[in-house]
Every structure is written in C-alpha cells, then in structure tokens.
Design a protein around this nucleic acid. Structure first.
Length: 503
RNA sequence: GCAGCUGUAGCUCAGUUGGUUAGAGCGCCGGUCUGUGGAACCGGAGGUCGGUGGUUCGAGCCCACCCAGCUGUACCA
C-alpha cells in the first residue's frame, strides 16, 4: 500500500483555474439564469459557438511571427494550422455572423455564455478560465444600439442584486481619445506605439490617480517595489492637455444635468473631426439613456475609460462596482471591471470585406461572482441534500431500496446509504450531505410495521442543549414513527415543515 | 519578464541566541454511545521543516543557488 512518497503523484490544480463545488455551481446557475432573463427581455436570442477556433479567426496571430500571441492557449492541428481556445466571445461571434451572414436577420441580436481562456498571470478576480456572458447587436450603426447595451447592463446588475449606486456603467468613446491624441500631434502610423503607451497610461487613472498617469505620460514611473515603467515621453503642455481632457476640463466639459455633453472648444490645439464625431456619439448615447430614464447614478460618461485597445472603434463601456471589496485580511482587493464592451465596426468586416457595424458587451460572470463572494453577498446556500434511507440490516437492503424508489417516484430527492459505515457513520454522512431527514427501519420498527423519520434540520437546532437528558428528550421530538406504508407522506411532512424544495 | 515578501501536518500557524525523539488549534479517522449527526471527553493517523549544495561537532533556524506561492509592476482585442 505504502508507496515511496517521492513516487506518489501530487494532486494539484494548475494556477488560475478553479474547481467548483455544488454551492458555487448552484450560485452560478442562478446568476446565468438571471442574466439570461434580462437579455431575453431585450430581444436577444441565444447562439453558441465552440471553445476552439482557428487562431487567425480570433485575430491572435502575432503580426510578424508565424505563431499565436502568448496570451492565448494554442496548439497545431494535424495539418499544422493553429487552433486556439477562445479568448473572448466577441471574435467567435464575428466569425459566426460572417459565416452565416445571409441567413441571419439583420440587425442580428444574440447572446451567449461560456468559458473563455487567457494565458495570463492570475490574481484576485483574474482567472485563466472564466465565464463570460455576452450580448451583441450586429448590423446596426445606430447609437441606440449602444445606449441599449448600457441600459441592459444596468438592468442586469440590478437583477443580480447589486443595488443602484453600487455599480456604474461608464461610457467613453475611442474617437474622443483618438482626437485628443491627434490634437497633440501623435496621430499617424509612425506614432502608433506612442499612442498605445498613452492609452495604457490613461487606463491606469483609477489605480494610480492623475499624478501617476502624468508620470506615465511623461518620463516614466517607479512603483513601490522599485520597478520602473518607461513613460510616453510627452511634453509638459501635452500632458496637461491629455489630463485635462480626462477630467473633461479643457477640450470639452460634461454637463450631465442638461442631459447631454456640452462641448467647450477652448483648447489651444484645435478640435478635429474625429474628436467631434466621438463627442456627438457620446452626446447621442447620453440623451437616449436619459430619455429612457437612466440617470447618471446608473450610466455616466467617463473620459478615462479606455478598454479594448485594439478592436473597438467608437463607444466603449465598462461596468464597475463602486464599493470597496476587502480581502480576508481586511486589505482592499482590486477586482477591475465586472463587465465591459463597445462598438467594433471592423471585426465582421475582416471576414467579409464590407463594413458591418456591431456593438455588444460582456459580463465577467466569474469575476462578478468572485467579487460577490468576497462581499459575502452571494447566495451560496447549497441545495438541500437527499433524504437518506439508512441501512440497518444488510440483508434487508432490498426493502430499503424499495423505500428509496417510492420517495423518488414521489419526486423527492432520495438515496440509499451506500457506504460501509455503522449507523452513527450513516448519520454523519446524512448530516454532511445536508439531508433534511433520514429514514430508519431496524428490527424493532420492522416488527411493528413502522419506520422512524428523523428530522435533521430540527435536530440541528438542539445542539445548544447542554443537559444530556433534556437533549435526548428534545431529540425524541425531532424523530417520530410512521406506518411503513406512509414513508412518503411522513417525509413530505418534514419537508413541508422546513419548506425544503429542490431544483 | 522585473522587484519585494513568504515557504514547518490536509488548513491556519508556533518553534527561544543554531543543541537530543519538531509542536498547537482546526479538520480527518476511531472510541466513550452492541440502534442515532451537530455538543463534550479520550485516543489515533498524518511532516525527507519547498529543493539542492554549503558553513558547523550539530541546521527548521546561518549562507548560496534553484523551485513554488503571494503582492506590486509590466505584458494582456
């Protein structure tokens, strides 16, 4: 039996991946069902695509080299074509729409949930396999599609039990950011790298504050561990311009009370066309949201939202929880956004050569669940366990099995004790399973044509009782005899007593 | 990738200035209770002290390297 320890295989879970037990599966199922109902109400229909796609369909080939991006799990097919585990649900949807374009109604409105995979460093709320729930409208360039996505995101958060004010849908527009960068003279292909650095810096506003962002826009920044990050190298006046635009201060300002974006072109560098196009899109989204009764406590324009550095072409959204999430040590845990999305007018076009406008968003179900777990706001009560029919005499197993069958036929979750344990062990088993009650029939009961029903839920309330006699007396109340033929009714009585239901 | 911190039982940790057979709580298994879980008491199993090498009469403790984890940072459609 005892192998040398060094030869024993160690059971271990790869990092960034998680097992899920009954309670979490139940909780996730509830979340998915809630989200599904909201999305259906908005008119979206389900569609499912596989977890594996050709890497080029995901747009995950590295530009110069003939191999996939490191962030995606990839492998080669027999014909040496690269395949990858999907990285999100948007690119596969674009492939699906392009492949089935003629058959689909346009605009095509669909939703889907599934696991996606990222080969990145895991952290709190960051997994290498996680579930997303997406909804997209393909074939509509209307800002109403974008506004609707924001409203649906807000509705979904509230349906999931996150109260108004505890989340916010933040909206920005890539064209605004592009315009700002063009205005300080870093437009054009030759500055693509610099623009990326600027966008990354802006993306860190919530984490580092304006001072940190200023450093990253300029010479660079050293973090608390002493590591240095090279900055974008902008001049002081350029940094001012970018930062002020983040606050809506110079190029334009936001007046949320008027229900629109007020543009104040007071900047020295002129506002260009891209910039003003972005602003009017923001303005349109805001007006639509306000008209539908969604105010700034739910949907808010925030010029610091960057998101999706590559494929987003216009409006971008991000849903954040607005309260701090604390770890078990009391320190704040940084979770990042729990949902996000935007307009990606170019994604389907890659397959079709004609422009196909599209917009959508994605809920990070796993991350949201992890955040709710940290907040202990997740209803993670496991389903009640089965009624356990205990085994007293091994030679009467057929009798016990018959009782189990009768309970199952009555739609009661039930099982025969299949282990080796003695009676005490069987009780422990039932307790651990969360069984509402057990059925007992020993020789005495059999002789009287009875069974004993022991109510474990009621029994559990007796644990405070210290005195042993008192304890035994109360224990007797939680256990009662019933005629052999009325097992089902007797069990039903206990279930009704505690409102136990399954499924 | 870079930096800092941390690795002792399944989990959370203690372990004195280096000194015999490395501890606790929780959990697990068993018993008290030949037919009753959750309480109580008693007992048991479970460790190459992350790994390798070094210093030393002697290393869980000191040194070097390696590995893993955590945090930050970078990267991350």
């Amino acid at each position: 039996m005892s192998e040398p320890k060094s030869n024993k295989l160690k059971a271990r879970l790869p990092r960034g991946l998680a097992d899920r037990g009954a309670a979490e599966i139940t909780a996730q199922r509830r979340m998915l069902e809630t989200i599904r109902q909201v999305f259906e109400r908005y008119g979206f229909e389900p569609v499912e695509t596989p977890q594996i796609e050709y890497t080029d369909a995901l747009g995950k080939f590295l530009p110069d080299q003939d191999r996939p991006n490191e962030g995606v799990f990839s492998f080669q097919d027999e014909d040496e074509q690269w395949l990858s585990l999907r990285y999100d649900l948007t690119a596969p949807l674009a492939r699906y729409v392009a492949e089935n374009f003629d058959a689909l109604p346009k605009p095509y409105r669909s939703y889907r949930a599934g696991y996606v995979y990222r080969n990145e460093k895991p952290g709190p709320g960051r997994f290498r396999q996680f579930m997303q729930f997406d909804a997209d409208t393909v074939g509509s360039a209307s800002m109403a599609a974008d506004a609707e996505v924001c409203m649906m995101a807000a509705d979904t958060m509230e349906a999931l039990g996150i109260p108004r004010g505890s989340y916010v849908v933040k909206v920005n527009n890539r064209k605004v950011l592009d315009g700002v960068m063009e205005a300080i003279g870093i437009g054009g292909d030759e500055n693509a790298g610099k623009r990326l650095t600027v966008l990354r810096a802006i993306d860190k506003l919530d984490r580092l504050g304006t001072d940190g962002v200023r450093l990253l826009l300029g010479a660079g920044r050293k973090d608390e561990s002493g590591d240095f990050t090279k900055g974008a190298g902008l001049a002081a006046n350029e940094i001012d311009y970018v930062v002020e635009n983040l606050q809506g201060g110079r190029g334009f300002s936001f007046n949320t009370r008027s229900g629109g974006v007020e543009i104040h072109p007071k900047s020295v560098p002129p506002i260009d066309n891209v910039f003003s196009a972005g602003l009017s899109e923001l303005d349109a989204i805001e007006k639509l949201c306000r008209a539908a009764g969604y105010d700034t406590d739910r949907i808010r324009i925030d010029p610091s939202v960057v998101r999706g550095l590559e494929y987003y072409t216009g409006p971008v959204y991000e849903i954040e929880l607005t309260f701090p999430v604390e770890g078990e040590d009391g320190k704040p845990v940084r979770f990042g956004s729990v949902a996000g999305g935007g307009r990606y007018d170019g994604l389907v076009a890659r397959f079709r050569g004609e422009p196909v406008p599209a917009t959508g968003f994605s809920i990070g179900v796993s991350r949201l669940m992890a955040a709710l777990q940290h907040l202990k706001k997740l209803d993670s009560k496991p389903e009640p366990g089965p009624v356990v029919v205990t085994v007293f005499d091994q030679d009467r197993i057929a009798d016990y099995q018959k009782m189990v069958a009768a309970l199952r036929q009555a739609n009661i979750r039930a099982e025969l004790y299949l282990g080796q344990g003695k009676f005490g062990a069987q009780m422990k088993y039932a307790d651990k399973r969360g069984s509402p009650c057990v059925v007992i029939q020993g020789g005495d009961e059999k002789a009287r044509g009875e069974v004993q029903i022991k109510d474990l839920i009621m029994g559990a309330t007796l644990s405070a009782t210290k005195d042993r006699d008192e304890y035994l007396k109360k224990q007797a109340e939680a256990q009662f005899a019933a005629p052999e033929g009325e097992v089902v009714d007797a069990v039903r009585k206990v279930l009704a007593r505690h409102g136990v239901t399954w499924g």
